[in-house]
Nucleic acid binder design. Structure first.
Length: 422
RNA sequence: GGAGAGUUGGCAGAGUGGUCGAAUGCACUAGUCUUGAAAACUAGCGUGCCGCAAGGUACCGAGAGUUCGAAUCUCUCACUCUCCGCCA
């Protein structure tokens, strides 16, 4: 959620910034400001009333103690009017706060100044490209390769679960594990602490990182237990720090976690879902950081650099995009997408999304930093895929197929224990 | 799944209707003492909201209720622990 203090003091900037998401937030923001004012003035009056009630109550207590029954009874009758007013004010305050929170949590994060305006992925800004996207010798899509070399069994996955739940078999499975291990080792070297979080999360966690209340349709839901399957490790890992005040000296906090991710992906179709392009269950290694406001943007760049390092070591041509306002996620202030070139399909595939949420998630989950001078403020949260497996596998197979065999990148061979797939 | 016990400040742990935001100990911070450290002593030490401030108000797992007044009584829910059952 946006912070009220910011909305109060930077109303115009926030409205202008939200325009980059193609949202005219003026009416909403003004409603927030009005509700906030109502909330504050109501609380002032309520506090005065409560103060009087408290005083009266303790006076009555004294009178009873001194045995002055009649005076005590008289004082009691005075309290009833006050009580009615207090209850009324309390009702108004709660209702106002609840309205305020509902509206506030429905407003997306205000994009960073560097975010370009735009409507769709067409308007994303390409920051840089690495590698030669055109030099692949063959153009066989990965679904032909996985079938030819028996790496992934899509059909049996359909039988036991449904579309989008593939079965990795033999060297396909080993390649998958090798990549996971490689990604975690790299993050480990970069100072991230590995965590293995739960794969189901409760409502509070879903709200904390911003998947709830609006995106519950995207998550699988275990009705009996009121739990959701995680769409990304971001949710459990970031929520480890929910309702916490962390010492500035402990920042940055860096975690890496490998988890399967589950997404319903309702409404997807066509070439986007062919093969490994979009799945309901997929593996991902995620990096998460908690930072101070003044350092978070440098940290964002560092995280992008980390992900680029992975792609370079794998030898996959890629490009870095700065997402436009219209294509950015609800909670993000600035997002970089990394896309690898898929030689077999002749197109770019998103394999990582690295974002700075600034205080947006922190404010939802009450995650604060205690500064050296003792003052508390919202922390910044960041995360990024490092990396999402399926499309990496797709690009790896396609780009390294020489017509006879698939050549495993040298960095992976110690993990796979085989150099080629043929 | 069954039975029982519990949930209080960073931790431990008092508190069963009034002056309790909450004893005490530990931890932590600052100071005194000391060549330095330890010890000892002194002081400070939760969070949110409102307020320029003084200060006010709320929070003792969550929510509702009884009462002039609730950490304390009642109800509902959640969670934790112990024992039994089941089980990787």
């Amino acid at each position: 959620m946006l912070q009220l203090v910011n909305i109060r003091s930077n109303r115009d900037e926030i409205i202008a910034s939200l325009k980059k998401r193609n949202i005219d937030a003026e009416a909403l923001i003004d409603e927030v400001i009005a509700l906030d004012e109502k909330r504050r003035s109501t609380q002032q009056v309520l506090d005065q009333n409560l103060n009087e009630s408290k005083k009266l109550a303790s006076e009555i207590g004294m009178l009873f103690k001194q045995g002055k029954q009649e005076e005590a009874q008289a004082a009691k009758s005075k309290t009833s009017d006050l009580k009615v007013v207090t209850q009324e004010l309390d009702g108004v305050l709660k209702e106002t706060e609840s309205k305020l929170n509902t509206i506030l949590s429905s407003i997306p994060n205000a994009p960073h100044s560097s975010v370009p305006a735009g409507k769709s992925s067409e308007d994303n800004e390409t920051i840089r490209t690495w590698g030669d996207a055109s030099d692949a010798p063959h153009h066989t899509p990965h679904w032909d390769l996985t079938s030819k070399y028996k790496l992934i069994d899509f059909e049996t996955g359909v039988k036991i679960t449904g579309a989008g739940f593939p079965i990795y078999t033999g060297r396909g499975a080993k390649l998958q594990r090798a990549l996971i291990q490689f990604f975690i080792d790299e993050a480990d070297s970069a100072g991230y602490t590995e965590v293995i979080p739960p794969l189901l999360i409760n409502e509070a966690s879903g709200f904390g990182t911003g998947q709830l209340p609006d995106k519950d349709g995207q998550m699988y839901y275990a009705n009996e237990d009121n739990l959701f399957l995680i769409p990304t490790a971001e949710v459990p890992i970031t929520n480890m720090y929910r309702d916490m005040i962390v010492d500035e000296a402990d920042l940055p906090i860096k975690n890496v976690g490998y988890t399967p991710c589950f997404r319903r992906e309702a409404g997807s179709y066509g070439k986007d879902v062919r093969g490994l392009n979009r799945l309901h269950q997929f593996d991902k290694v995620e990096i998460v950081q908690l930072e101070t406001p003044e350092r978070s943007y440098q940290t964002l760049e560092n995280m992008v650099a980390h992900v680029e390092g992975l792609l370079r070591k794998l030898g996959l041509p890629y490009r870095v995009l700065r997402l436009c306002g219209g294509d950015m996620g609800f909670t993000s202030a600035l997002t970089y997408d990394l896309e690898v070139y898929s030689a077999g399909q002749g197109r770019w595939l998103e394999v990582s999304s690295v974002s700075n949420f600034e205080t947006y998630q922190a404010n939802r989950m009450k995650l604060r930093v205690k500064r050296k001078d003792g003052k508390k403020e919202m922390a910044h949260t960041l995360n990024g895929s490092a990396l999402a497996l399926p499309r990496i596998v797709a690009a790896l197979l396609e780009n390294n197929f020489d017509g006879e065999k698939i050549n495993i990148p040298a960095v992976l061979v110690p993990y796979t224990k085989f150099e080629t797939i043929s």
